[in-house]
Design a protein around this nucleic acid. Structure first.
Lengths: 210, 210
DNA sequence: TGTACATCAGTGAACGCGCGTTCACTGATGTAC
DNA sequence: TGTACATCAGTGAACGCGCGTTCACTGATGTAC
C-alpha cells in the first residue's frame, strides 16, 4: 500500500496526465481521472496546482520539452539543408506519435488562466530551435527574415500535423503512400521554400491585394 | 409572442448556434443554450437533430459554405497567380473574421458520431476551390501535383489561421504590422511556393531521410 | 536524545452546476372522406 | 364545406452524470529547544 505522503505527487500527476491524454483524449482528461490514476484522492492535486488549467499546462509544458528535444537532435546534422528537413520531419512525427498531447499543447484554453510558467518557456524553446534551423540555411543578407520564415513554416507544419492527426488529408499519392512518406517528401522541399519565405520580412512593399 | 409551431426551427437553430459560437466559444455552445437563444424549450431541438453533434456539424457545414463562397469569389480573378493569392488571403481572412466558427469547423469531435451529411459536402466544396486555384497556376505537365500542392498549402493556411486566432504568432515585422498585412505578404509568395510543391506527387524518389 | 509543536500533504464528504437525453404530454396542422 | 383523425412539432418535468472546487479533518514530517 502506498504511504500517506506520496513524495513526488506533482511530477506523478503530470506523468499520469500525459498517459491518460492518449487513451482518453483531451476532453476526458479531468482532474479527478488524473488523481485516480495516480492512486490519490481527487482533491489531492490541489496541494500542487491551483486549478485544472495549471495541471494541464504543466502537462503541455512537458510535451513541448519532448518536442524540443526531438527538434534539437534533428537539427544537429552538419549540412544545414539536411538539418532543416530533419527538423520539419521531426516536428510532424512528434505530433503523429503523440496526437492528443499535441492537441493539448495548442489548446486555446491554456493561454488564459493560471498557466504554468514552464509552459511559455518550453514552447518558446521549441520555436527557437525551429528558427535556428531556418537561420542556418539563410544567406547572411537574409538573416532578418529568419523569424518571418520560421513563423510561416511553423504554421505549415502545425497545420499539416493537425490535418494528419484528424485524418483530413487523404493520401494523394498512388499506392496509398503512408503518412510518413508524405511528410518526408514535404520535408525535402522545405529548405527551398524557407529561403523563398525569408524575403517576407522587412519594410512593406507593393502588394497585389488592396 | 411566438406561435406554438416555429415554422423553420431547424434553420433557426443553426443560425443561432452560429451567433452563440462567436460570443461564448465552442465549449459554451450547448444544445440548451442554442434552444434558449432560439426562444424554444431545451428539448425542441431533438425534433430536428438526433443529438448535439448533429446540430454542431450542421452549423459547421454552414461555416464551410460561407468559406467556400469567399474562396469562390476570390478565385474569379483573371490572372491565375493573382487568383491564387486572393484565395489564400480569403481563406485566412475568413478564419480571422469568424475565429470560433473556424475552430468548430475543424473540431475533431465532428467526424465521429452522427455528423450532418452537409458537413462533408461543404468541406469538400471548399477544398475543391482551393485545388482549382492551384491547378490554374500549374503548367499542364504538373497537373498531377495539384492535389498534393493543394493539400500542403491547405495545411499551411490552416496552421496560419489557427496560430493567428490564438495569437501565437508574434508580429515579426517592424511597427507591429497588423495581422492582415502579414497574411497579404504570405499570399504574395504563394503562387511560387505552390509550383514548388507540385513536384511532390508522383512516384517515390530518393529522400534525404531514412 | 526526547518532547512539543508548527507545517505540510494527504483524505473524503459535500456543494452546486450545467449538461445531454428521455418521456408522457399537448397544441397545431393537414388530410381523407 | 365540415368533420374525424393521424401526424407533426412543440412543452416542461425529471433522470443521472461527472465535473471542479471547497472544507474541516487527519496523518506524517521536520524543527526548536
Amino acid at each position: 500500500m502506498p504511504p500517506y505522503h506520496h513524495g513526488d505527487l506533482r511530477r506523478a500527476l503530470v506523468a499520469r496526465a500525459g498517459e491518460l491524454l492518449e487513451t482518453d483524449g483531451m476532453d476526458g482528461l479531468s482532474l479527478r481521472s488524473v488523481a485516480a490514476r495516480a492512486g490519490v484522492s481527487h482533491s489531492a492535486p490541489y496541494r500542487h496546482f491551483p486549478d485544472r488549467t495549471a495541471l494541464l499546462s504543466a502537462t503541455a509544458a512537458l510535451g513541448f520539452d519532448e518536442l524540443a528535444d526531438r527538434l534539437a537532435s534533428a537539427g544537429e546534422a552538419d549540412d544545414p539543408d539536411q538539418a532543416m528537413s530533419a527538423v520539419g520531419l521531426a516536428y510532424v512525427r512528434f505530433a503523429l506519435a503523440r496526437p492528443q498531447m499535441y492537441r493539448l499543447m495548442f489548446s486555446g484554453d491554456l493561454l488564459k488562466g493560471a498557466a504554468d510558467p514552464e509552459y511559455a518557456r518550453a514552447s518558446t524553446r521549441a520555436f527557437e530551435l525551429l528558427r535556428k534551423a531556418v537561420e542556418r540555411i539563410l544567406p547572411p543578407t537574409d538573416q532578418a527574415g529568419a523569424g518571418a520564415a520560421a513563423s510561416i513554416l511553423w504554421a505549415e507544419h502545425h497545420g499539416l500535423a493537425l490535418l494528419l492527426i484528424e485524418k483530413r488529408i487523404r493520401p494523394w499519392m498512388r499506392d496509398e503512400t503512408p503518412e510518413d512518406e508524405l511528410v518526408r517528401r514535404v520535408a525535402t522541399t522545405l529548405p527551398d521554400r524557407a529561403r523563398a519565405l525569408a524575403s517576407l520580412a522587412g519594410p512593406a512593399g507593393a502588394s497585389k491585394d488592396g
